[in-house]
């Protein structure tokens, strides 16, 4: 077993031990914190597929996160107010069922990523960062000025959505749902990185002209990566809204995009468990330091600076050493 898989196993064990420990000592708040970490990790794993393998520095991933959030908010809002979502030749009702909400969030995130990708992948480097940021901001201001779903105030959902066979209002059960989804996506990410598509995408990041010279289209590879990435982050958005039972335009804010990127840089770019480590540390610091000072983000900034300057591989790199590609 490589050192990296030991680090990964340790993080995995923490994600099981902490909530179970909290359950045993009757600390539901800790379980909620862990759920928050898992959901944010899931969103960042989505970004890491585009950023880590494909080298796509998207500063607009809040768009997909927010779309997932509003997919949940809008569907649940119509269900709880008993108003149809759409009336015409046929009627679309709202729903409180998680699997359906997830599906809508995934499709919404993927579709948005496809459209944004078509336009923004014509650029590279700083221009790509700026254009993805601009798309994120467009969604932000659109939701602020759209009164139908609460505008700036957002939407409150009174009861958490349901999953067949579970009582999602019990913290540990909702945690289990989020944790299983994170594991499924991490498994997919690990397979993807070693699959032909991952290999080609990885090369498209390093030497696009070589990829073209062997008959492949680097832009198409990156577009597909962005669609997968948007779908995963969209799913995380739906879970995040369900955790808070609230969705507002702040999910679309550029700070949200920035936070997702911070998780990855803190944890380790392109490392499978990098975003997981980053999100866990972020939530922990937010809890520990946030209680001491309102300016805790200044400490986070200092930490980020240290990691970037001295621990180039991020947290996972500090413990596991340089990344290696295995055959």
């Amino acid at each position: 077993m490589s050192r990296e898989s030991i680090v990964n196993a340790a993080l995995f064990a923490l994600l099981i031990a902490v909530p179970l420990g909290a359950l045993a000592t009757d600390e539901p708040f800790i379980i909620t914190l862990a759920t928050r970490a898992v959901i944010l990790a899931l969103a960042a794993v989505g970004l890491n597929i585009a950023l880590g393998i494909g080298g796509l520095v998207s500063l607009g991933h809040a768009a997909y996160f927010g779309i997932g959030g509003y997919a949940m908010g809008i569907l649940a809002f119509h269900a709880q107010s008993y108003t149809p979502l759409f009336e015409g030749p046929f009627v679309i009702e709202g729903t409180k069922l998680m699997p359906i909400i997830w599906l809508v969030a995934i499709c919404g995130g993927a579709l948005a990523a496809f459209v944004i990708g078509l336009l923004s992948l014509r650029t590279t480097g700083v221009y790509f960062i700026m254009i993805t940021l601009a798309f994120g901001q467009m969604f932000y201001f659109f939701t602020i000025s759209w009164p139908a779903y609460g505008g700036e105030d957002g939407l409150s959902i009174y009861v958490r959505n349901s999953f067949p066979g579970l009582n999602t209002l019990v913290p540990i059960q909702f945690y289990a749902v989020c944790f299983v989804l994170l594991c499924a996506v991490l498994w997919f990410n690990a397979r993807l990185a070693r699959a032909p598509f991952g290999l080609a995408l990885n090369a498209a990041r390093q030497v696009p002209h070589r990829v073209e010279a062997i008959g492949l289209d680097p832009v198409r590879l990156k577009l597909v990566a962005l669609v997968i990435s948007g779908a995963v982050t969209g799913l995380a958005g739906a879970l995040f809204a369900d955790l808070n039972r609230f969705v507002s335009p702040t999910m679309f804010s550029w700070q949200m995009s920035g936070e997702l990127m911070v998780f990855i840089i803190l944890g380790g770019t392109g490392r499978l468990f990098g975003p997981v480590a980053g999100a866990m540390l972020f939530v922990l610091l937010e809890y520990l330091l946030g209680g001491i000072s309102d300016y805790w983000l200044a400490f986070l900034g200092a930490l980020l600076l240290l990691v970037v300057l001295y621990g180039r591989g991020g947290l996972v790199g500090i413990f596991a050493g340089k990344a290696r590609n295995h055959d």
Binding site: R191, P196, L199, G215, N325
Partner: peptide, 24 residues
């Protein structure tokens, strides 16, 4: 960043058109 073998595998994949596989 890739291994020597991965570089030639990439070429062979491109030629064979078997790049759109996501899991295996």
């Amino acid at each position: 960043e890739d291994s020597v073998l991965q570089n030639v595998v990439l070429g062979a994949m491109g030629a064979a058109g078997t790049v759109w596989h996501f899991l295996r």
